[in-house]
């Protein structure tokens, strides 16, 4: 398990180089929230997505310095390498989600909004976290399969594809079952179901990546 920790530390230390840019972006959007009188709800979604994308960028870092090859000389299994990457990305997304949630509440309070709507922010946070996790569940195996270079283009195509398929499925469900779109999202607001679904998809994705990476020759 130590090695998984070591690999996560590696990704975190890589991160510190653009910590400054991340902070700048966050501060910028906080200011924007004030100016726009937006009660912080944009940040609730924006920060988890931003952190999730930063998580995925660890593939680019490794690709740039050919670390992926070097890491294979470490006394560890490919399973641990994939595991550390999945943990790192989901933890980073979670941190982004919590940060977004906390900042939104602080902003709402500071703007002395009469009705601080924690429930609404929480729903947005959970939606953002689950959505991002599902997107990553698609992205990571693609990164493993095609590498960070080719992966980037394929990634964009797949994100669009995922969104189209997802909305297709929702439309289909709404059509088949006698429920309205509003009530469909209402069902999804059962937070446990949403989060559980996202995590299960993420776990399946982990298994897929493991299979791809075990066979891969660098």
């Amino acid at each position: 398990m130590n090695i998984v920790k070591g690999l996560i530390i590696k990704d975190l230390l890589n991160l510190k180089n653009y910590m400054k840019s991340i902070l700048c972006i966050i501060v910028f959007y906080i200011l924007l929230s004030f100016i726009n009188n937006d009660l912080g709800s944009f940040l609730t979604v924006f920060i988890p997505i931003c952190f999730g994308m930063i998580g995925i960028s660890s593939f680019n870092y490794d690709n740039l310095s050919k670390s992926d090859e070097y890491i294979l000389t470490f006394p560890t299994t490919r399973k641990n390498i994939v595991k550390s990457r999945y943990l790192y990305i989901i933890v980073l997304t979670l941190v982004g989600t919590i940060l977004g949630f906390v900042l939104s509440i602080i902003i709402q309070n500071m703007m002395q909004s009469t009705s601080t709507n924690i429930g609404e922010i929480l729903a947005l946070s959970i939606g953002a976290f689950s959505g991002m996790t599902i997107v990553q569940a698609v992205q990571i195996p693609i990164m493993y399969k095609f590498g960070a270079e080719k992966g980037r283009i394929i990634q964009m195509i797949t994100i669009v594809a995922v969104m189209l398929i997802a909305s297709g499925i929702i439309a289909l469900i709404v059509k088949i079952f006698p429920i309205s779109i509003e009530s469909f999202f209402f069902i999804l607001q059962g937070y446990e179901i949403t989060i559980a679904t996202a995590i299960i998809i993420y776990l399946i994705s982990y298994k897929v990546s493991l299979k791809i990476f075990s066979k891969k020759e660098i």
Partner: peptide
């Protein structure tokens, strides 16, 4: 290995923090 190593954005201190978990 000839041209692969950890990221160039790491310092020798960082590398120590990583490697003590690896070996």
């Amino acid at each position: 290995l000839d041209d692969c190593f950890l990221s160039e954005y790491l310092t020798p201190l960082d590398i120590n923090k990583i490697m003590k978990n690896i070996y």
